[in-house]
Amino acid sequence: MSELIHAVSLEENAHVPGELDPLTEQEREEIEHEMTHYPFKQAATIEALKVVQKHQGWVSDGKVKAIAQILDVSPEEVDGVATFYNKIYRRPVGETVIAVCDSVSCWVMGYEGLMSHACEKLKVQPGQTSADGRFTLLPTPCLGACDKGPALMFGEELVTNVTGEEFDKLVK
């Protein structure tokens, strides 16, 4: 009998799960407020992710777990949503995200030149963060400023008809 019990050993690569990073009081409050807008808690998933991102800049694995807990769903459920939407950052970003529109009207208006200028200026490739941690440069789909292209989002702010000089001023 005891032989039966000891015949067993644990697999070596068994995984240790990551830690939950608890929500701050303010995050919790804001998420709970958003939850009141919907009949089911889970419907506030996107808001919850945005709340955390607003405060943390991005959404870490630990925060995904914390959001799952408050919404009463699994981290998988939250992560499936978080990774679907392009404005949820699951990796750290710089202080300011610069999102350059790469869609058709801005393409016609020469966004490619602006993008390569930005890359040179910040010494990054699209998708990367500058060495000083100040800027993350991203391409973004049509910003709805097609009559004023090329356009970009500088953090929360829309900037239109952007030239190289103007870009340099923005990132000074």
Partner: peptide
């Protein structure tokens, strides 16, 4: 009356994807 701000993706404009998104799901 509630304002819901999205988290990106063009497909959210398709009305049924939009509904899924409002439910906090993948669009």
């Amino acid at each position: 009356f509630y304002l819901h701000t999205s988290a990106g993706r063009y497909i959210c404009g398709e009305e049924t994807a939009l509904i899924n998104s409002l439910e906090g799901r993948r669009a």
